[in-house]
């Protein structure tokens, strides 16, 4: 047998990811799983997968899990957390799921200070359904439902979830990260960890927005996708910490 070059986090199941080559969903899964391992919460964590490419996340994580209706993961997680307040509950959601159909649920879960954590994967497109426009799609970006490029006059503007959410009083940790370089991966993991710690401490709602690629529907190869993300998405969606009421976690 070949020697493994890295160890699979315990909180990831023995299942092969269904994601396309160069897709960042897999990296983000691994980071979440590593955080769960490090915080030693695998046995007390419940997860809610979305409808989107990461619908299978409920199978990829070795924790109790379910799939919510499209956009409703924060409400499902609310029900779980209220029923089992001593458990850790997180949602994993795409940008169509969270920022279009599920806008109301995420805003109100955040505003209630629901003690859950959301991993929000923003790839500026509807991946699963074949590359339609998302509310996060950039101006000028061509998708199957904005074939001439997104125009502000008719399709409106890219929506900035973190900027909107930072005004809600119930949110205690909010950061936008990317995973397009090893350094950024380390920072992204630290953000996810802090978001989970915020929940563990019972402080309130926490969310990490992760800028992500969709090579398949962007029509780019994995390397081009990272370049495109760096050059375009980061301009529209600047990386940074928006809310931190957790403080020093040392």
């Amino acid at each position: 047998m070949e020697k493994a070059t890295y160890k699979k986090p315990k909180s990831l199941a023995e299942k092969e990811f269904s994601y396309c080559p160069g897709c960042h969903h897999g990296i983000i899964h691994r980071l979440v799983a590593e955080v769960i391992d490090e915080l030693e919460i695998q046995g007390k964590t419940l997860m809610v997968a979305p409808v989107g490419c990461s619908v299978f996340a409920y199978e990829f994580f070795d924790v109790d899990g379910t799939v919510a209706p499209h956009g409703r993961a924060p409400a499902v997680a609310t029900g779980m957390k209220r029923a089992m307040p001593e458990r850790m509950v997180f949602t994993y959601q795409g940008d169509g799921d969270l920022a279009a159909i599920g806008t109301a649920e995420i805003i109100h879960a955040a505003n209630r200070g629901e003690k859950i954590t959301t991993i929000f994967v923003n790839n500026a497109i509807y991946g699963m359904t074949g590359g339609q426009m998302a509310p996060t799609t950039l101006l000028g970006m061509k998708t199957t439902t904005s074939p001439y490029g997104r125009k502000a006059e008719t399709e409106g503007f890219p929506i900035h979830v973190s900027e909107l959410l930072k005004e809600t009083a119930g949110i205690v940790y909010l950061e936008r990260v990317s995973v397009s370089s090893p350094q950024e991966v380390i920072k992204a993991k630290a953000a996810i960890k802090k978001a989970f710690i915020a929940q563990k401490k019972g402080l309130g709602f926490s969310l990490v927005e992760v800028l992500s690629t969709c090579p398949t529907n962007w029509g780019l190869d994995p390397v081009e996708s990272i370049n495109w993300l760096n050059e375009n998405m980061k301009k529209e969606y600047p990386i940074g910490v928006f809310v931190d009421k957790v403080g020093d976690i040392k």
């Binding site: 379910t66 779980m80 957390k81 649920e105």
Partner: peptide, 11 residues
């Protein structure tokens, strides 16, 4: 949202 909270709690 209510029905989905019910879903989550029922889980």
């Amino acid at each position: 949202a209510a029905v989905n909270m019910v879903y989550g709690a029922a889980c």
